[in-house]
Design a binder for these strands. Structure first.
Lengths: 225, 225
DNA sequence: CTGCATCCGCTTCGATACTG
DNA sequence: CAGTATCGAAGCGGATGCAG
């Protein structure tokens, strides 16, 4: 992208990550280091030359670093640098702003279970963001969506989600499509199919107290206001 | 821009504001409502048809609203909607991430005094972000740069900056180029010209305590780390 | 003068094909 | 698996025109 050539930190940030696809590449790497082919599968519609170009540019800028994995696997692994990791906050804030746009449902859009990890960061405060003694209940939940498995862990300081393995034990198991799970997590009480949620009574009580709290964060505002 | 067509709130946010120039248009409107020609002057290099197109798209999306000003002035005024105002946090976080990119100085880049308002939001915590009894001193400063006048107001809960008029009284007066003022505000102690700062001894002490605190927020990290 | 629309050369994107 | 090469389509940048 052509530089904006402005002495402004927002412009200069956009000079680095403002290109089409670039922030979504960073989103994928925020979930964890990935190989080229993993990134390509996780970004439906990106042209392969564009992905290569974006990774090269991000690496030159110091946002991404790639390493050749040891002998047996023989693959190049891309990961965020320390500076790149700091993009978590801005991107999560952008995602939080975009939460009202999710209310129209998935429609014909692509869907990935791993994207729910990002949705969870947007729906709830992140660990450390809240002071002690907030009303966030402590609970663990495994989320199974579109073939991906996520582990959600909450405590009074916030909520965290990360990729996990299929059999990971948790107090609550949540299964369904991304759309159903998002509707459940966001505490949506309107019509529409919800995820299938299992667990013992006390764990379920804490889990649904958590989902109800998503609405209290002034995020699901009507865009028309 | 072509939609990413992903069921992800970050993708959907970028479908709305991810186009080239769009976030910079929002940046200008975050400083305050503007007319078309003001926006065009504040965004050096934007093609006039692109600005018109971006404003139209933002209005259709519900981010911007335009109103015809009353009879005498006869001008269309563009302003952010309530939803659009909520972009302040994400864009300031992006600008904060980009602060290390400012250390190379202005060079040949365009410079505007009003952009310093955004830089100040990025350099310091915003009002309400910090708990009481932080070490932020209370001080008011008028910043005169590139023909723009800003009023900086700090108290223990954070720092705020907004456009103001040329003669606005303040405890401290800061004059210089954007680059010099940014260097002064960010507490940069390396070589380079600084802004010209005037005020009484106690006000100056509090002002420089403020600028020193900018360094403590883990923002001016070396990108190579 | 403000607020755009139109035209045109150039760059970037998207899709497919191909290679080490 | 991890990209590069190619080419038509779309978008951008700059200049200009023009209506209210």
């Amino acid at each position: 992208m052509k530089s904006y050539s402005e002495f402004c930190s927002l412009s200069r940030a956009l000079d680095v990550i403002g290109d089409r696809w670039t922030m979504l590449v960073v989103r994928e790497l925020l979930v964890g280091p990935s190989r080229y082919s993993d990134l390509h599968k996780a970004l439906p519609g990106i042209a392969t030359n564009l992905l290569a170009s974006r990774l090269r540019t991000l690496e030159e800028a110091g946002v991404v670093a790639s390493t050749d994995a040891p002998a047996p696997v023989s693959a190049r692994v891309y990961a965020l640098t320390e500076w790149g990791q700091k993009l978590r906050r801005p991107l999560v804030e952008l995602a939080r702003w975009g939460v009202p746009l999710m209310s129209t449902g998935a429609g014909e859009d692509h869907s990935r279970g791993r994207w729910l990890a990002f949705a969870i960061m947007a729906l709830f405060p992140e660990p450390g963001a809240t002071q002690e003694s907030s009303d966030i209940p402590a609970v663990t939940a495994r989320i199974d969506a579109e073939g991906d498995n996520l582990l959600l862990v909450s405590d009074p300081t916030g909520v965290h989600a990360s990729m996990t393995s299929a059999g990971e034990p948790a107090e609550v198991i949540v299964k369904g499509s991304s759309e159903e799970i998002f509707r459940t997590l966001s505490g949506d009480r309107t019509e529409g199919a919800h995820a299938h949620v299992t667990g013992d009574a006390d764990a379920l009580r804490r889990f649904f107290a958590l989902t109800s709290s998503a609405l209290t964060f002034d995020r699901l505002v009507d865009r028309s206001t």
